[in-house]
Design a protein around this nucleic acid. Sequence first.
DNA 1: TTAATTTGCGCAAACGCTTGCGCTTTAACA
DNA 2: TGTTAAAGCGCAAGCGTTTGCGCAAATTAA
Lengths: 343, 343
Amino acid sequence: MKNNKKANIRDVARETNMSITSVSRVLNGKADKYRIAKKSQDLIMEAAERLNYVPNFSAANLRSGKSKTIALTIPSLNNPFFAYLASEINLSLRKEGFVTILSDTFENNEDEKSILRNLLKRNVEGLILIPSGNDYEHILELQKSGLPIVCVDRYYEDLNLPYVTTNNFKGAFRATEYLIESGHENILCIQGVVKSEPNKERIRGYKEAMFQAGLKNIRVSGNDFSIQNGYLETKLAINSPKRPTAIFTLSNTIAMGSLKAILEEELSIPDDISLITYDDHPYLDFLITPLSCVEQPRADIANMTVKILMSMLSDSEFEVSQVKLDPNLKLRDSVKTLNGKQT
Amino acid sequence: MKNNKKANIRDVARETNMSITSVSRVLNGKADKYRIAKKSQDLIMEAAERLNYVPNFSAANLRSGKSKTIALTIPSLNNPFFAYLASEINLSLRKEGFVTILSDTFENNEDEKSILRNLLKRNVEGLILIPSGNDYEHILELQKSGLPIVCVDRYYEDLNLPYVTTNNFKGAFRATEYLIESGHENILCIQGVVKSEPNKERIRGYKEAMFQAGLKNIRVSGNDFSIQNGYLETKLAINSPKRPTAIFTLSNTIAMGSLKAILEEELSIPDDISLITYDDHPYLDFLITPLSCVEQPRADIANMTVKILMSMLSDSEFEVSQVKLDPNLKLRDSVKTLNGKQT
DNA sequence: TTAATTTGCGCAAACGCTTGCGCTTTAACA
DNA sequence: TGTTAAAGCGCAAGCGTTTGCGCAAATTAA
């Protein structure tokens, strides 16, 4: 290695007395397709190795139009649910030979827009999106331009975009049903971002379960997937004339806030009040009372997303698929069985 | 927009009767430097807008050698501490006009290697690395090739690489000191990956504090930053002939395991046993007993890292800087004051 | 009016790769 | 021996930018 300049494909060609063309073909695994002799292949491989040749992606990308890059935008890496999805999607894409450009939008719709505009320049081949708001003009435009897009968890109902999410209706229905079966009738549901699709579906599930049980006392409050929202709404509820016997929080962040309020009021779970939440998390096992929850099939969501995106990439006629995976009720100790009811 | 083919710089040039050169200069903010008339600038900007021109990064990158891309490898996105760092670094880089290619190595040294090899092809301009093991041959090689690298949190002591981390010695020292001031003498320290630099420093801090207090009863066990390790070691300690009065866990994952063991044994914190841990986390406030901890200056770590990397990029003579930021002792309610000691 | 300077801009050569097309050599067949 | 097919490979044209250099026109100075 006398020359410390990076080797390029030409160097390999010169070294082997082969053409650039053949080198390119061998290095891209197309040797057999173009009938390059086994001997030549070995020669080239060996030389590439020896020269420490690293292909220049920009050049390849410029020529071929393929960047092998997928953009992933996510509302907040600090939300463990999203972090898990990001991690799993990243891995899954890597296995397919793609690289992930990840951006954290901090739940900001405007930032999401400008981030996406910037990513576009980079010839990304596809976009995996956990939306950060209700504006979708920019997404629509991307879709029109032919960029394959898959939404995860959240999605836009008005848009004909592929998505994969949990069956939020079912999850909320089951959780509520479980509460009701345990004898609860006065159930408060603390919601997150009101207009987000998962939230709407969960509320629908809650209401349907209440309805089927003949319970008219629908109580929904809150407006954000935040600790603070959970805290405030729980404070309010505890001090309301008719204190709920059970609370159903629609995310584990809300549950955190709720828990804080309950502790402050010196109530205990589940003796004084029951709590169940959407989203699992390892920490839930270690709380004052381990919290029962609706567990989402996180790994499946991630893998399904990548699978759909790959289909879209290889087949432009791929028809939009919108997938809802079934959640799972994970019971721990935070729900009390009331007055003689059986579990 | 009759033509739905993507516009390129040539289209803009044609549209404005300017040369490609001028268009490029205007669009790259170098208009004034090259004295392009204000009128022409406006003309070009307007046309670019109208044609919906999006520059092709690969082409620019190929020509200029600048990819405006930084690789970030991280041992696990599921570790909230790392997720936070990733998120903050991502934001910080974005502000500097860079894009982050993030990869989760799942704490696997081998994967780290192959991931980095792949990223190299993409002309990344720099690497921010939270190492996933003790092998550093591959890193050394990258460094030799001239790639700017900054380590975060963990680092290789033998390598002359810039890093930014917490002053782990100080953090552990203070935590141990606090335990001792609270009257504890039998203190178990449950460590993580033995050979990792942060771990070694923390152990050194623990020992030094014990030493200065004249305490000879050094108890260090464990070998992994995992829940399981915390669980096992705590189980063992609780059932040992001389049960410690306090446990100092070296990460919040270890603390989780420790907590689980303590609960299982039906001991209470801090009445039966005290617990303090490295790393803060929002959830720590909501545990059965809010845990006192050594809080790392996460935001500062992230921003300092980016700052150093940027310096390296703009000034190749930049001398290696190795920064240790001071941690902060965050007291909650998990340490008991023993026999008449004052806090 | 002429010379010197400034203003405003463009030419054309890379950057390193992929790929459509086609050429030569060798083997197979009749 | 001539014809055909297969094997093995290379030419050269781009992909869309950036950038060193240089040149004409306009302005200013003398």
